[in-house]
Design a protein around this nucleic acid. Structure first.
Length: 255
DNA sequence: ATGGCTTCATAGTGAAGA
């Protein structure tokens, strides 16, 4: 079984890239973030023709998450119970016996800002929500754009970024707190090339210079970890015309 | 470089992303 996550930065603009990528890689599950469309605009027909079903939760202009899958998803839930939020940032579904959670963690803008505080409280609410979710679904995969680079090796220039949003100690502590619930970062289960990133700024020719951050992750619950046989970042779509600024992250599971 | 691109909402520029 192949599961993947990709922040597409507008599904309207990126639909051709997504369809090409689905055809080439045939993932069983693809989680999308920043779809930036209302549910009425979701391109269900094109995805169905590509062989995928979809569960989605979107809004105009910002945010928006979706889970594409080859087989039907059940028990679809939206958002964080007990954390009312207009912003569409979480959708969960059970697919082939695996609880699949797709998240778009808030960006945080800058350390100490109101959006930063929102990010930290969103992460705290996610932690509480996951605790309960794990009780019901021990086989759980948490995929998405976390907007956190967990360690300095996930940052192209740790000194320049020190203390910045996406790498600050409070954000990294929140990430570790999630891991302590009983999750592993699938990417780090395996030997990886140095300077592996999943996001590059559109500006400054950042991709060509590999000035990136690894902020998109697939976390697997401990009971799922033994099933994981590989995890990679696919940089190829970042090289296309009009790319998303994020690359897809993939994990392979024995079914 | 509180910038640089890109997208969206808009019909000029401005917000937001990371």
């Amino acid at each position: 079984m192949r599961i993947a996550t990709w922040n597409v930065n507008s599904l309207n603009v990126r639909l051709p890239h997504v369809l090409d990528w689905l055809a080439a890689h045939q993932p069983d599950v693809l989680c999308l973030q920043e779809t930036k469309l209302e549910d009425a605009q979701f391109p269900l027909d094109a995805l169905r023709q590509a062989g995928y079903q979809a569960a989605f939760s979107g809004q105009k202009a910002y945010n928006g998450v979706a889970i594409l899958s080859k087989v039907a998803a059940t028990e679809i839930t939206y958002g964080l119970r007990g954390f009312p939020d207009e912003q569409k940032r979480l959708i969960a579904a059970t697919i082939s016996n695996i609880r699949t959670v797709c998240v778009y963690v808030p960006n945080g803008q800058s350390v100490g800002s109101g959006k930063y505080l929102y990010k930290l409280s969103w992460l705290a609410a996610l932690h509480e929500w996951l605790k309960e979710e794990l009780d019901h679904h021990p086989k759980l995969a948490l995929l998405g754009d976390f907007n956190i680079a967990p360690e300095d090796r996930d940052v192209y220039d740790p000194k320049a970024w020190a203390g910045n949003v996406l790498v600050s100690e409070q954000e990294r502590a929140a990430f570790r707190t999630l891991e302590q619930l009983g999750f592993c970062d699938s990417f780090r289960l395996f030997e990886q090339p140095e300077k592996s990133y999943s996001w590059w700024d559109y500006r400054m020719m950042a991709f060509r210079r590999n000035m990136g951050l690894r902020i998109d992750h697939i976390l697997l619950s401990n009971t799922l970890v033994p099933a994981c046989t590989g995890s990679t970042i696919d940089r190829a779509p970042r090289k296309l015309e009009r790319p998303s600024d994020h690359a897809p992250v993939v994990a392979e599971l024995t079914s």
